[in-house]
Design a protein around this nucleic acid. Structure first.
Lengths: 340, 340
DNA sequence: GCGGTTTAGTAAAGCGGTTTACCAAGTAGA
DNA sequence: TCTACTTGGTAAACCGCTTTACTAAACCGC
């Protein structure tokens, strides 16, 4: 007794015209006399007709849906990014399919092959771990993909990042201006371009200030709260070998602060901290957290624009790499060092 | 020169069998001799065949995709919810389509009509504003929908909330135990069931402690940071008429704290604060924020289970309302009042 | 060596749209 | 009045897959 949804055919016969006519009216590819038109519209109303999107997609060969692959939606950075992409997609009349990879590497590839060629018209791809080349090759086979936030080397598609190097530089500069001459960089996996560039920006700032390179330390790990905690423990157990820490993500900063506070290390008196990303209520932290701010919403918006506006036939368009500017938001977690 | 994706037909002719055979092999509805089977599989490999999901959905009448409608993904509470739903969906082999309504009421209805009957197999629906009845009636027409987190009155579908009343009670109890006898409730829109229940839980706690009801104040507004700020300004301009504030969401609490700090009102010395939701790094706030914790991930998981496991033919199953337990996370934003 | 069953498939009808090609009737111009 | 064009449509193929109904051939027991 389950009623099938009403189809074009039902509408057509109710209005006494052919399905072609209804379809074309709906798609605006025909002009009809008012009388016919309103008869059809009445039938649509009456039957509560809604077109079947699958039939439509099949027929047209596109779905007006784009896919978004992110590591983890619960992470505020990605959440904001998702939100921006969704908003922009909606503005352009596109739907959004969401996929979280949750650090299970196989899933990224599964999404690419299962989806990209058919299901969605394009893919915004955000990864957060190193690629052995497999991902890149899949992306290259797949077609309309833009790589965002973190690089997939060798993927020959448009790429969009924030200016990581500049972010590192701004952080370094700010620390130098506050009189720091020894800083610890706590970053993500070395293979990741984001962490490399942030580090190298930081290094450039220190070098510009003629600070000897042995004043620059580095812990390498993951972009997680947990790694931040571990880094803090290591930092403490090594006797606080720097007066400032540049954390390569808010998550890392949060982990650091947690443990540092817990262990009674005072921020910023004993150690200054700068975070990276600046999403979430960092301004309410104790102390409020100075951070490099990524233009997250702009990234999301631009990612969608790239996907839609890129000319995918034009090989040189596919090699673009765009950097969006970052800024520093100075709060109270950085102060001049009180110890050497 | 654009190559069409390879279809079943291509595979079939490459393997020298009919499309039926390939289709049935893929769906496991046929047993084939090893020789034929591997011939087909070789062809699939060779041609990099990927089934077209739209054709499949059209043909089968379902899409193995569920829809999730939330007000705003950038909000950490919803972000976490989305994440939990996505994870559970994936576990069950379902894809997820995401829709953010961004407080534009028409969009909710658009999603319902455009999607629910066809595009997705079911909908997890989260609203955050009052309904004039339209939404409810649409939901009732639509079919497989579960309403989560905030009620849509008159919608006759399974519903899933956290135990808001109990949350209010726990907050009240905690404040009473700390010696407060005047508390301000800052909540969302009065029409929303969540805010009403939280308030009524709070009132019950005060009544249980024999506190006169004129010790209970209430500001009513929205679940936003901005409303939190306004509430704080009003609270200050009214001369801090309570020794504790129960904020009905983290967002509201954040707005409150921002302004209170800015204006030099010390928390918790001059005024204690309790939040609601407890997502995000509230433990790093100054002071760390005491809050009622919603089991957000459990809600997301359970929502999907409800959607999938409900027997939609069984009218009484559709009227279920399930409450998930909340807990209080005591931190440092509540202290005994220092003034009357 | 004949009926019955199993094996190994196939043809064709959908699913619900879009789109191409075409056509009949009316109308305007020459 | 004849031709040509516009108006107002329609029939049918097609998108790629699933599924139902069916069959040809091999096997099997007697």
């Amino acid at each position: 007794m389950k009623k099938r949804a009403t189809s074009l055919k039902d509408v057509a016969s109710a209005a006494g015209v052919s399905v072609t006519t209804v379809s074309r009216l709906l798609n605006g590819t025909i002009e009809l006399p008012l009388e016919t038109k309103s008869r059809i519209q009445a039938a649509i109303q009456e039957l509560r007709y809604e077109p079947n999107p699958h039939a439509r997609s099949l027929s047209r060969g596109r779905s007006d849906t784009i896919g978004l692959v992110v590591p983890d939606i619960a992470n505020p950075f990605f959440a904001t990014l998702v939100s921006a992409v969704e908003e922009e997609a909606d503005r352009r009349g596109l739907a959004l399919s969401l996929y979280a990879t949750l650090n299970r590497p196989g899933r990224e590839i599964a999404y690419l092959s299962a989806l990209a060629r058919n299901h969605v018209d394009g893919l915004v791809f955000v990864t957060n771990h190193p690629d052995d080349g497999e991902l890149a090759s899949r992306i290259n086979q797949t077609g309309k993909v833009v790589v965002v936030d973190e690089d997939v080397p060798d993927a020959m598609v448009p790429k969009l990042f924030c200016d990581n190097e500049q972010g590192g530089y701004l952080a370094g500069e700010h620390l130098v201006q506050n009189g720091h001459r020894s800083v610890l960089y706590v970053g993500g996996p070395e293979e990741m371009i984001s962490t490399r560039r942030r580090y190298s920006g930081l290094r450039r700032a220190l070098r510009d200030a003629s600070i000897p390179m042995d004043g620059l330390l580095r812990y390498e790990g993951e972009y997680t709260v947990e790694f931040g905690r571990n880094a803090a423990r290591r930092f403490l157990s090594e006797g606080m070998p720097a007066t400032a820490i540049f954390a390569s993500s808010d998550e890392i900063a949060i982990g650091l602060i947690e443990v540092l506070r817990e262990q009674g290390a005072s921020i910023p008196r004993e150690v200054s901290i700068i975070g990276f990303d600046d999403v979430g209520p960092l301004h309410l932290f104790a102390p409020s957290l100075t951070a490099i701010r990524q233009p997250v919403r702009a990234i999301g918006q631009r990612a969608l624009a790239l996907l839609v506006d890129t000319n995918w036939e034009q090989p040189e368009d596919l090699l673009s790499e765009e950097l969006l500017p970052v800024e520093i938001v100075a709060r109270n977690s950085v102060a001049p060092p009180s110890r050497k």
